[in-house]
Design a protein around this nucleic acid. Structure first.
Lengths: 256, 256
DNA sequence: GTATACATTCCACGATACGGAAATTTTAGC
DNA sequence: GCTAAAATTTCCGTATCGTGGAATGTATAC
């Protein structure tokens, strides 16, 4: 076992699970082996072990492999740890109904925002991160909304640790740009992802506070940039903030 | 590696994930080792491997271990494979709004029903299976609704393969009881879990059909038996059936 | 029907994963 | 604050396990 890399076969199996989850339509064993850089016999053995416990399954007929239901069962435990996900759902729905855009709820984990819950608008936009999806904190409306509540030192440490990823032409590219952006968020009370993660997509987010006065999580709406004009962003920002305040109150939270 | 048991360390790691998911408030390493029947050093090594890939995480402060966000991300892929989960959500909401009970959507996987989606009523009843939760097919309203569309031979094979588990005093206990129950479901058009899985809890379910005329999944409502009187069950059965028919139509399905 | 690709099984070998022991850290009780 | 107990983390010798290449079996494409 090489230094600090954990148990090799477990690491490999988890890697295969991650790859499976990236293939919504399933993937053939040989292709998976190629993607993972492993021998087909190794991948076969690891997959059948995952299958035995229900974490992976082979589709009858095509033989393509998929994430299995035990992965869903285990993964659901993650959201159950966040007791706010269920009570937040009616607020996401109202947010969606008032803005006619997809409403999201997310938290920061590591240097990324994870979408925990979502209520889609009538128009389903595939580019929007689904539940389980993630984005770098600094390319995400929800991420920027949450870290705007942090100290400047803490933000600098995040930037130093995870860096700045230039995913689109509009991604934040320098520590100065980050500082300027965070100042904007603090002034406005909401954050905007202005095509920084996905070209053509805008997102408006605000934080929900915990009883301890910390930014527990964020809620947001996402929509096409063609529709989300600057005027519309301001309007939606007000709505997101209003519902974030109501949800804070509902959960017994308080802004600092 | 003993015969037909897959890769030992992978199997163990997955076992640990399952155990973590059963502890919503987290679990200490020593307790987990005891539960898994493994040495603490082994569990430590496996947990840190899971942690490296984000499938498990140790809670700062208490040191208790939890399912990590990558498990949620991977697990979410499972519901994305079921393209009907998202479009079904508005119907679950309407079902909840009309009956004032918790609405659920589930599929059969193995000899069990897995809850894929849920819209809770105002009164949160902890005994109801959350998303990711599972119940034996023959103790579940959704399970019985789905298999009532199968041939008698297929039902007999299910019973033979998975058996009948007497979980409560009211669980189905014999193949004859199963046959009688299935006949009732077919006659009524909906299934009822009459405290067969959880004492004090009733559930009314109907199937949603696929374009191929097969029972794709089921939707249901669950409520306390004190409130779900026989009259109420009949009333709710009609509503569940109505919404199941509408959802079938919406998804381009057809009853056989 | 044949060639190719994919999936599955086998097996020799060496590296890895194991668990007990020891060391370190944390917690509980007084 | 001190001490004992419990929990966690690290170390290490050993033998079992996991590996990938080869062989075999099955499915697919032409």
């Amino acid at each position: 076992m090489s230094e600090n890399q954990g148990v090799q076969s477990v690491d490999r199996a988890l890697r295969l699970l991650e790859l499976l989850s990236a293939h919504d339509e399933g993937v053939k064993l040989t292709d998976l082996a190629r993607e993972a850089g492993l021998a087909t016999s190794t991948v076969h053995r690891l997959l059948t072990t995952l299958e035995m416990r229900g974490f992976a399954q082979a589709e009858a007929g095509s033989g393509r492999w998929h994430v299995g239901r035990r992965a869903f069962e285990v993964g659901s435990a993650f959201t159950r740890q966040h007791h706010f996900v269920a009570p937040a759902l009616p607020f996401l729905r109202r947010l969606r109904d008032r803005t006619h855009e997809t409403a999201n709820l997310g938290v920061i984990e590591g240097g990324e925002v994870v979408t925990l819950s979502q209520v889609e608008s009538r128009e389903i936009i595939r580019a929007i991160s689904p539940p389980g999806g993630r984005a770098p904190v600094l390319c995400s409306g929800m991420g920027k909304a949450i870290i705007a509540s942090w100290s400047d030192d803490a933000i600098d440490r995040l930037v130093a640790r995870y860096g700045l990823r230039k995913i689109t032409a509009r991604s934040l590219f320098s520590p100065e740009a980050v500082q300027h952006e965070i100042a904007e968020v603090r002034m406005r009370g909401f954050a905007v992802d202005d095509e920084e993660y996905v070209p053509g997509l805008r997102c408006v987010a605000a934080v929900v506070w915990s009883p301890q006065g910390e930014a527990a999580f964020a809620i947001s709406i996402s929509g096409l940039a063609t529709r989300m004009t600057p005027e519309r962003v301001t309007e939606c920002g007000g709505i997101v903030c209003e519902l974030a305040r109501e949800l804070t109150a509902k959960l017994g939270g308080r802004a600092p």
